[in-house]
Amino acid sequence: MSHHLAPAVETEAEIKEQLDTKSLGFWIYLMTDCVLFGALFATYIVLHTSTFGGATSHDLFNMPFVLLETMVLLVSTFVCGMAILAAHAGRKQLTLILLGATFLLGATFLGLELSEFSKLASEGHGWWASGFLSAFFTLVGTHGLHIAVGLLWIGVMSWQLYKRGFTPGVTRRLILFSLFWHFLDVVWIFIFTIVYLIGVA
């Protein structure tokens, strides 16, 4: 009887099945996000020569700075992977520390990106200046917005982990977050290559 009434503790198989279903749903969201970024990339590639007589991509990009951004994000995605391994091992404190490191690296990346944006805008190369710059700010800014949402997500999740420990819900969100964070690094590979490397080559 009690077996029927109590909202019984979920069995391992049930938890696994739930994770599979939810992670497929989240994965499909990531795939649609790829299509969104695809549209922005197509726009950028079409517009990148439309500089309206202003600065071109050759003039604007500071490559050592962009390489630094890229490395910070890459280390961040690696540390995030370490956090997931720590979570699998059930080590709460280590997971929290690694999530904190992921957050700091992500925040550093976002700070670097915003300082690049404000430098461009203050020199008169803002999104209003040409089709090229509109497309550039939209593409790179959308990626930055995703990073900002990810930072918020890490914050909320760390708080939940700290308060509740490794409940099935917290663990599941942790795994989905790691997918999101790795995905953002994959998008950045293409921004780094198509916008910056090919832009200055």
Binding site: M63, L67, T70, M71, L74, V186, I189, F190, F192, T193, I194, L197, I198, V200, A201
Partner: peptide, 30 residues
Amino acid sequence: TLLAYVIVVNHLATGFTLLATLLGLAAVQL
């Protein structure tokens, strides 16, 4: 990442070769 960066900064390739190399490196990293 460093390989692609070094190729661009040191002008080790131009034109179509460069484009194909960079996109190839990005695809491998993907």
